[in-house]
Design a protein around this nucleic acid. Structure first.
Length: 382
DNA sequence: TCTGGGGTCCTAGGACCC
DNA sequence: TCTGGGGTCCTAGGACCC
């Protein structure tokens, strides 16, 4: 049976850290962590060498955004608090996040892929899906030698990404997005894995259920309680049992993914649903005692959201706020306006209304502003 | 040594309309 | 008067992803 589709998932290896190594090649091979604020920029010394901050002197609330593989060897990983990372690997170099630089390299790697295969779905700054099914010239190669043909094509994409950016990536090629996402992780970093449905039992079923994109920490815990550890365990459970435990929609989906089934198309364009800004304070703020400071922060967030909307050409009909208390409880409030806006004062006004509806007993650690119900901005009528 | 910032999608109840 | 059902919008929260 020939595969109907060939879908590729491409994931850049330790992307932010790898981009930093392009400008600081002397750090290659060392444990390096990206994260935190802007207070640890490398310093250029008189003799031309650079001095980098290390984790051991870090104090604050930041988390690891990306760690190089040598840092991962110490147990450091994305999402970990920097204080904890410092305890595991104090000698690691700490670099601040530079999104503008990563976005530049993101555009470059996507352009390199598009030179070979143009049907691309963006999945954020460092990964994409590519539909290889209709790549010009690939049809014949795949027809003559399905496995080898598609492998050569994926290898050509990887080579072009490396040539254009100096960065490596890992790639999975399978009949669908679900399996490709899993496959791209099987030989990371700098790997290429091609699978068909025939490989399901040997390559996918032994993996932890948590490896499936869409099975998060909560669902994984619940599955463990049902003695489901691997994807294979999941595949062995009757559909009805999964629906019983997880509900009609998610239960049926679990059953499908365990059997490697997924017919989602590669989507090449989508409009944004929301746009937001949020900030975690350096110290928790009190609604009354720090009222002025909170007001300023809220105004600043509203201004940023307004500018973001204007820059991207969108207006929002719903404005919301997000608060996180010191005990980490999160609440949201939102308000739908009579007409859409991208004006900072309108947004500030709505956010203020939302804030009045929250009980502020505890101190706050985070404040956020979100715009949703987006419509395209039109030329104002003069 | 407590846990960033930017997103998407889903669920569920109530309001309101037909 | 009571019953009934469907559809959409709004709001709040939560799971999950990068």
């Amino acid at each position: 049976m020939p595969n109907r589709r060939w879908i590729c998932h491409l994931d850049m290896d330790a992307f932010y850290a790898s981009v930093e190594l392009l400008r600081y090649p002397e750090l290659r091979g060392q444990p390096v962590v990206i994260g935190g604020g802007r207070r640890h920029q490398p310093e250029r010394l008189a003799d031309g060498t650079r001095r980098f901050a290390t984790l051991h002197s870090y104090a604050g609330r930041g988390v690891v955004t990306t760690a190089t593989y040598p840092a991962r060897d110490f147990g450091v990983h994305s999402g970990m608090g920097l204080m904890k990372a410092a305890a595991l690997c104090p000698q690691a170099v700490l670099l601040p996040v530079d999104f503008d630089e990563y976005r530049r390299h993101s555009r470059a790697f996507k352009a390199a892929v598009a030179e070979i295969a143009p049907v691309i779905e963006d999945r954020g700054i460092d990964e994409i899906y590519i539909d290889l099914t209709d790549v010009p010239g690939a049809q014949e190669a795949v027809a003559h030698d399905p496995h080898g043909g598609v492998r050569a094509l994926a290898q050509e994409i990887r080579t072009n990404v490396l040539r254009r950016t100096g960065l490596t990536c890992s790639v999975g090629v399978t009949p669908n997005k679900l399996l490709s996402k899993i496959a791209s992780e099987l030989d990371k970093p700098d790997g290429l894995t091609v699978l068909t449905e025939a490989d399901l039992a040997t390559r996918i079923w032994p993996l932890a259920a948590r490896k499936v994109n869409g099975i998060g920490p909560k669902a994984a815990d619940k599955l463990l309680a049902l003695d489901v550890h691997t994807v294979g365990d999941l595949a062995a459970r009757p559909r009805a049992e999964l629906i019983e435990a997880f509900g009609r929609s998610y239960g049926a989906w679990l059953h499908e993914v365990a059997h490697g089934r997924d017919d989602r198309p590669v989507v090449t364009h989508s409009d944004p649903v929301s746009s937001s800004r949020e900030t975690t304070f350096e110290r928790n703020l009190h609604a009354v005692r720090d009222r002025a400071e909170l007001g300023e922060i809220l105004t600043r967030l509203c201004t940023q959201v307004g500018l973001d909307l204007q820059r991207k050409g969108w207006r929002a009909r719903t404005i919301g706020i997000k608060l996180r208390f010191e005990d980490f409880r999160t609440v949201t409030r939102d308000l739908t306006l009579a007409s859409p806006t991208a004006d900072a004062r309108d947004i500030r006004q709505a956010a203020g209304q939302c804030l009045k509806r929250v009980e502020l007993q505890q101190r706050l650690r985070l404040l956020g502003v979100r715009a949703s119900g987006l419509t395209r901005a039109v030329e104002p009528l003069h």
